[in-house]
Design a binder for these strands. Structure first.
Lengths: 175, 175
DNA sequence: ACGATAACTGTCCGATCGGCCAGTTCTGAC
DNA sequence: GTCAGAACTGGCCGATCGGACAGTTATCGT
C-alpha cells in the first residue's frame, strides 16, 4: 500500500506538479481513501520527501566519488554519474525541478545544496574563472533538465531519444 | 494599476510558481483588493497569459527569421536570438517553464509548439539524425533553463554571471 | 454643478485544500 | 475463539482557493 501511494504520487507529481496534485487526486489514483495516505505518511510533504530522498543520497554519493578526481577525469565521471542519476531517478528529478522550492533545505534532504556545489567544483576543475563554473553548471543541469522539463518536445520519438542522445552528446570532454 | 498587477504577478509567479501564488498574494503585493485584479483581468489565467504573450510572439518571430538560414549560420543566429530572448523575457520564461502545463495550447499563445519545433529544425540543420535534433533541443533549452530554473545556484556571483557566461559558452558552432 | 463612465472594493459564494480523529475492519499470534 | 494491534476509512474541521456581484468612489467632459 505504501508502495502504491508512492508510485501514484510520483506519477501525478511528475505530470501535474506537487502543488497541482491534491491528496484526493493521489487517493483516487491509488483507489483508497484520502485519510489512508495520512496514515502511512505524516503529511503531504512527507510523501514528496520520501520520493526525493534516494535521489538526494545518490547525489551526495556522486559528489563524494568525484571529490578526489581532477580535470577531465572528474568531468567524464561526473557526466556518466549524472546521466545514471537522471535515468534512475527521472521520476524524482522531475519532481525536484518543478517544486524544488518546496523541498529544498528540508531536513530529509541534508546537504543538497552542498552536493550540487561540490559537483560544480569537480566539473569546473581547479579553475577559478567564473566562466568555467558557469559552463560546469550548465553541463550539470542540462541532462536532468532536458529529461525533466515539462516543455513540449516537438515529437514523441525525439522525447524517447532524449536521454540516450544526451548521454552521447555529453560523453566527451566538457571543453 | 494594470501594470502594477503585472509586475507583482510576474515576480510572485517567478518565485512561487503560478499554482503557488494566489490572487490574494498578488493583491497584497500590489496593495489593493483581490477583487481589483478581477476587474482588470477576466481571471487568474488571463494575468499569466498576458505576461507570456510577448515572449510567445518573439519566439515565433525568431523562428521566422531563422527559417531561411542554414547550418552554422542558423545555429549562431539561433543562439544569439535565444540569449536575447532569455535576457529580455527572463521573467516570462521563468513562468513559462514552471507552469508550462497550465499555459501551453492556450489561445493567447498560438503556435507556441510550432515555434519551438521550427527552432529545433533550424538548429539541427538539414540533418535527419535524431541525435542532431536532440543536441539542438538541448542547446535550445539550456539558456532559458539555466537562467530560469529554480534550482539553487551555488553562489550569488555565479547566478549573476550565468546569462553572460551562457552566451559566451554557446557562442560557437554547435557541433 | 452634474451626470456618465471608469476604477475600485467589501462581501459573499461554492469548491477544494491539507489535516484530524473516532471508529471500523482486517490479520495473525496464541 | 479471542484479542491486540495494525490497517484503513467516513466524516468533519478551519482555512483558503478562484470568482461573482452589488455598491462605492474617483475622474472627467460638458
Amino acid at each position: 500500500m505504501r508502495e502504491d501511494i508512492l508510485e501514484s504520487a510520483a506519477r501525478l507529481f511528475a505530470t501535474r506538479g506537487f502543488r497541482g496534485t491534491s491528496l484526493q487526486d493521489i487517493a483516487s489514483d491509488v483507489g483508497c481513501a484520502k485519510a489512508s495516505l495520512l496514515y502511512h505518511f505524516r503529511n503531504k510533504d512527507a510523501i514528496l520527501a520520501e520520493l526525493l530522498a534516494p535521489a538526494g543520497r545518490e547525489l551526495a554519493e556522486l559528489a563524494d566519488r568525484l571529490a578526489p578526481l581532477d580535470g577531465d577525469e572528474a568531468a567524464r565521471a561526473a557526466v556518466a554519474g549524472l546521466v545514471e542519476l537522471s535515468l534512475g531517478f527521472r521520476r524524482q528529478v522531475k519532481i525536484l525541478l518543478q517544486d524544488v522550492d518546496v523541498m529544498i533545505n528540508r531536513p530529509e534532504l541534508p546537504g543538497l545544496n552542498e552536493s550540487i556545489e561540490r559537483l560544480v567544483d569537480s566539473l569546473a576543475g581547479r579553475s577559478d574563472a567564473p566562466e568555467a563554473r558557469v559552463r560546469a553548471w550548465m553541463a550539470l543541469v542540462a541532462v536532468p533538465l532536458t529529461t525533466a522539463t515539462g516543455l513540449p518536445v516537438p515529437d514523441e520519438t525525439l522525447r524517447a531519444e532524449l536521454t540516450r542522445g544526451a548521454l552521447r552528446t555529453l560523453d566527451r570532454p566538457l571543453d
